[in-house]
Every structure is written in structure tokens, then in C-alpha cells.
């Protein structure tokens, strides 16, 4: 499947109509929007936090804020990018909060009980969980090689499947800047042997 066609059409005109109705305060009009984007936004947040429970909390906040502010969205067709932008800001808030918590040492590092390695081997799907854990370990090693901007552009393009113009809009950068960052990030990934191994060792 070519990359250009990967960006899914979010329901076209019907979705825009729901957005307009939700902006007018029509009861239930926001529900289809949640239904359509909840999985995408959840994954987007999970890729950045790698904690299911934290991602769920953040997604709740994202949709609650979107629900309250939907009347401020001038172009209903931009709902997808707008939701990603809210989610991006919430993830930033999450990391800011986490940094403060770490600084004062008040709260212990949260361990997701479903994701913790200690329980991985006791479950029937242990092998799958182990593979999942290994994938994220490799991925984290690779993503650390990128700058903050390169990482964000890379995730938005290949994991969240946003278009270049959507990414530029979300990050408030020009399309050429986005592309430059993307080329650099892709180049760094391709140079890593761990990246090449992902496609050779039966991962796919």
C-alpha cells in the first residue's frame, strides 16, 4: 500500500456534519466522533507514553477538552489534526507533570500491572507479550537516536499516519521543515542494524 493512500478518510462529509452539530451542542453528536477517533488517539498517546493506563487517562482528557472546545474549531474537516494537536499537548503536560513528580520524588514510578514484565510469563499469551516487550525495547533504542523534532515527525508520519500538511499544522512548522526532519529520521533508522533486524527475524 503506498504511503500517500494510507491516510484514511475520516468519514468525509458525514463526519464534518457531526462536528458542526456537536459545535451547536446537539446531544449525542460528539459520540460518533469519539467512536471514530478513540482508537487512533489512544494509540498515538500509547506510542508516546508506553503505558496503557496513562494513555487511557490522557485520552479521556483529550476528548473531554475537545468536547468542550469543539465550537472553536473553524474547519470541521480538520477535526483529525485538531484532536491530534490536543493529544500532543496533553502528552506534553503528562511529561511535564512526570518530571516534577520525579524531581520531588513524591510519587513512585507507576508500573502498569498488565504491562509489567513480572507477569508476562505467567499468562497464556506470554510469548506474544514477550515479543511485544522486545519490540518496544528495540524501538525505544532506535527512537533515542533522533532529536525531539525528528522523533515527533517520524511518529506522526509512520505511526499515526498523518499527512505532511497535517503534521506541519500540528507542529506549527513549514512542510519543508517537516520533510527535512523526516528524511533525517528515516536515514538514521535505516543506518541502524537493529532496524534492519526487525524485518529479518520473523517479527512481521
Amino acid at each position: 500500500m503506498p504511503l500517500q493512500n494510507l491516510h484514511p478518510d475520516p468519514g468525509g462529509k458525514r463526519l464534518a456534519a457531526y462536528v458542526q452539530e456537536a459545535a451547536r451542542g446537539v446531544e449525542g453528536a460528539f459520540d460518533p466522533i469519539v467512536e471514530r477517533f478513540y482508537p487512533d488517539i489512544f494509540k498515538m498517546v500509547y506510542y508516546r507514553t508506553q503505558s496503557r493506563t496513562d494513555a487511557e487517562d490522557i485520552v479521556q482528557e483529550v476528548f473531554l477538552q475537545a468536547f468542550k472546545k469543539i465550537a472553536t474549531l473553524k474547519a470541521p474537516e480538520r477535526i483529525r489534526g485538531w484532536l491530534f494537536q490536543i493529544a500532543m499537548n496533553k502528552v506534553k503536560d503528562y511529561y511535564r507533570k512526570k518530571r516534577w513528580q520525579k524531581l520531588f520524588g513524591k510519587f513512585p514510578e507507576y508500573v502498569d500491572p498488565q504491562d509489567s514484565e513480572s507477569r508476562q510469563f505467567q499468562r497464556p499469551d506470554a510469548e506474544k507479550r514477550l515479543q511485544r516487550g522486545d519490540f518496544w525495547k528495540i524501538f525505544n533504542r532506535l527512537i533515542k537516536k533522533l532529536s525531539k523534532m525528528e522523533k515527533e515527525v517520524f511518529l506522526l508520519k509512520f505511526f499515526d499516519h498523518l499527512t505532511i500538511s497535517e503534521i506541519a499544522q500540528i507542529l506549527n512548522r513549514s512542510e519543508s521543515t517537516v520533510k527535512t526532519c523526516l528524511y533525517r529520521a528515516m536515514g538514521k533508522f535505516r543506518k541502524e542494524s537493529a532496524f534492519q533486524r526487525l524485518f529479518q527475524e520473523g517479527w512481521t
Partner: peptide, 15 residues
């Protein structure tokens, strides 16, 4: 890169 994205989606948990 497409497969990397697919893998990430597959290894992400469901809410």
C-alpha cells in the same frame, strides 16, 4: 517504514 508502523499498532494494547 510501513511495516514498522503496522508492528507498532499490533504491539500496542487495546484500551
Amino acid at each position: 517504514f510501513l511495516r514498522l508502523g503496522e508492528m507498532a499498532a499490533r504491539y500496542a494494547p487495546q484500551p
